[in-house]
Nucleic acid binder design. Structure first.
Length: 494
RNA sequence: GGGUCGCUAGCUCAGCUGGUAGAGCAGCGGACUCUUAAUCCGCUGGUUCGGGGUUCGAGUCCCCGGCGACUCACCA
């Protein structure tokens, strides 16, 4: 049983004090990083190490252990690399060789030794001194198959990271991606800011918020669904270019593309419009793809995708109307709710989402067109009705776009609505929908309208879904696999 | 919330129409100075997710519950 295995490891651990002076080391001067050692020396010939004794001092977790009499091979792991280490009975002190039996796979040790190449040509540290740093009391999952149980990989992500290198690599890639995005935005003179997560009113997106309570103020607060309205207040305040990479929270379903908390980058630029945002997006994605994957072209489940600009542009309304034409549907009939419901039934559309002519058209697009947008594609011509924060182009549509990749919405941007009178009217319409039972409709935010009265310059703004972009760039099907700790239901106490 | 599937040793998995729960890895003991899924000999290890039921007998069949995966609905 597992307790027996832990008991044996604990007994070994008890002996550390006599054998090595410490049960738990305070620290270890790790003078050489393993990936640096590998980079510097793995290409050298075997003879190089015969002539020159290169001494290194490093530390890591033991991830494999092969004892063969008077020789013991291990692999020592650090975040970016691993290296083989070798204990020879003649090179370490006799009692220290014997004390190797107190070490297990999973333990952290610090070592000092010299480099050599084995008969098979593998760069190896021949250990002269070593010091165990901390015991791993639990047995690690098996080295060959790794940790397969999906649930355990999420619940105990550290085990997944120790044992499954693909998983570790995927997260390192995500980190690199976020770094690249940040670098890009800073190079473009955007200022990085943080705006409230706790908001008295959850605005900036149509979504169901999480509610919470502040005790000292005795007020209800919401976790933000978007930072949008605060970022635009900063534009009013004269911060001409701002961006924020942070979490949003939406109290909605969970599936392979949705987690209740997710990361978005939102950015806003004064004196700009949706056209500049689209150009910037093309440039950004191309740059990030090259930084992360070394190329602007990637493949995803055999599908080829290019991030090289320019991206295709399709009109939401034109595509939806094309569908109506093909099916012989008269658009004017769509004002009749009974007609819409009938059509929803025959084409398998959501009645909930088709409660007006325009919403029906959007639903048609989402269902029949969007899933087929594999290569990066901008969708334009969104109805005013579903875009309460975008500037009107005419009575029907706004200056707004969404970017689709692999059938997935990855970005959403627009020329910001900066007319306070128009904004008030749009909020009123939202408030009415909310009153009529739409839980996702926006609240009337008078404080934001007040800010607009001080003058929001013409502004382009956009939000990019970071998790989804990470999925695409790491060829990952589920959002949970690019989130270190996806939300799971707690296990029930027995 | 609905549907389908899954849950067996620390890990990866077998276990057929119901008949004594098995293997590999890990672990323990032994051999071994170039191994790398090391090898060889021997050994240990189980509340079969939980609770009921049917049965002489349940990992297997039935019911209830838990958690997860996929999928539909909702959403980005």
């Amino acid at each position: 049983m597992e307790e027996d295995l832990v008991k044996i490891r604990r007994e070994k651990w008890e002996k550390w004090k006599d054998a090595f002076g410490d049960k738990i080391a305070l620290k270890f001067e790790c003078e050489n990083k393993i990936d640096q050692i590998v980079n510097d020396y793995s290409h050298k010939e075997k003879e190089f190490f015969d002539e020159k004794k290169i001494v290194v001092k490093t530390a890591g977790r033991i991830i494999s252990l092969r004892k063969m009499g008077k020789l013991t091979f291990c692999h020592l792991s650090q975040i970016k690399s691993k290296i083989q280490i070798l204990f020879e009975k003649n090179s370490v002190k006799e009692e220290n060789y014997k004390n190797l039996s107190l070490l297990d796979i999973g333990d952290f040790i610090g070592i000092e030794g010299y480099l050599l190449k084995t008969r098979t040509g593998e760069l190896t540290i021949a250990v002269e001194n070593y010091k165990p740093l901390m015991k791993c009391l639990k047995p690690l999952p098996e080295k060959w198959h790794g940790l397969q149980d999906v649930e355990q990989r999420y619940r105990q992500r550290y085990l997944d990271l120790i044992i499954n290198s693909e998983s570790k690599e995927r997260f390192l890639k995500r980190i690199k991606m976020v770094d690249a995005i940040r670098e890009f935005m800073k190079k473009k003179d955007y200022l990085e800011v943080e705006t409230p997560m706790l908001q008295p009113m959850a605005g900036g997106a149509t979504a169901k918020p999480f509610k919470t309570h502040h005790n000292a103020l005795d007020i209800d607060l919401f976790l933000r669904v978007a930072p949008e309205l605060y970022l635009k207040r900063l534009i009013v305040g004269g911060f001409e270019k701002v961006f924020e990479i942070n979490r949003n929270f939406r109290n909605e379903g969970i599936d392979t593309r949705h987690n209740p908390e997710f990361t978005m980058m939102e950015f806003y630029e004064s004196y700009s419009s949706m056209d500049e945002m689209m150009k910037l997006t093309e440039e950004l994605l191309c740059y990030v793809s090259k930084e992360v994957n070394g190329a602007a072209e990637i493949s995803f489940n055999e599908q080829k995708i290019s991030f090289n600009p320019p991206y295709k542009v399709v009109s939401l309304l034109m595509e939806a109307r094309k569908f109506l034409n093909e099916k012989g549907i008269d658009e004017n009939d769509l004002d009749d709710s009974q007609v819409r419901e009938k059509l929803c039934d025959s084409y398998g559309l959501s009645k909930e989402k088709s409660k007006s002519r325009m919403k029906f058209l959007v639903e048609v697009f989402d269902t029949f067109v969007a899933p087929n947008l594999i290569e990066p594609t901008f969708v334009v011509d969104f109805p005013v009705e579903v875009s309460p924060l975008s500037r009107k182009k005419d009575d029907e549509v706004v200056y707004r776009f969404e970017l689709y990749i692999l059938g997935m919405e990855v970005a959403n941007g627009f020329s910001e609505l900066n007319d306070p009178d128009d904004q008030r009217e749009r909020f009123l319409k939202q408030a009415k929908e909310k009153f009529e039972g739409d839980l996702e409709a926006m609240s009337y935010d008078e404080d934001y309208c007040l800010a607009l009265e001080y003058g929001l310059p013409p502004t382009g703004g956009e939000g990019i879904g970071i998790d989804r972009l990470a999925m695409i760039l790491t060829e990952t099907d589920s959002i949970r696999d690019v989130l270190l700790f996806p939300l799971l239901k707690p296990e029930k106490e027995k």
